[in-house]
Amino acid sequence: MKLPFASLAVALALGMPSALFAGSQDVVAENAWARASIGTSRPGAAYMTLRNTGEEPVVLTGLSTDLAMMPDIHRTTTDAQGMTSMAPAGELEIASGEAIALEPGGLHVMLMQLQRPMVEGESFALTLEFADGGEMQVDVPILGIAARGPEE
């Protein structure tokens, strides 16, 4: 009787790391890029695709970077009259096996209160924070101000 219990305890103990970070270690960031800025007074923007390769849904709750005081995920929307606006997107859930695209015209990383100019050819570190306590650092290459995406 003792043996199965002990093995269960071991299994639980081994299971702890994934219980602690339920799923966020399975997130992969692809094709990250940002546009260069002119100085520091204007906000910057960054883009990437976040893919959840795990079995559990994950929730992106926040961002941090030393590049900007207020990094946040925003969503650009266009109304029926063609007027566009941006608003904070809030927490983002990525279902198991799904990906969300942060791309021009939709969801994107807004980098408000830049601490230094974003220079073409350089890159910066962006930390993604997840609801399970997990964190992930993404290296974001800075492309030209007129760049359209990572492939061009």
Partner: peptide, 17 residues
């Protein structure tokens, strides 16, 4: 407007293209 981080650079780069 030039303080626009998203829509305007995207439109300008679309138009440039």
């Amino acid at each position: 407007f030039t303080y626009c981080p998203e829509v305007c650079p995207t439109t300008l780069s679309d138009i440039s293209l």
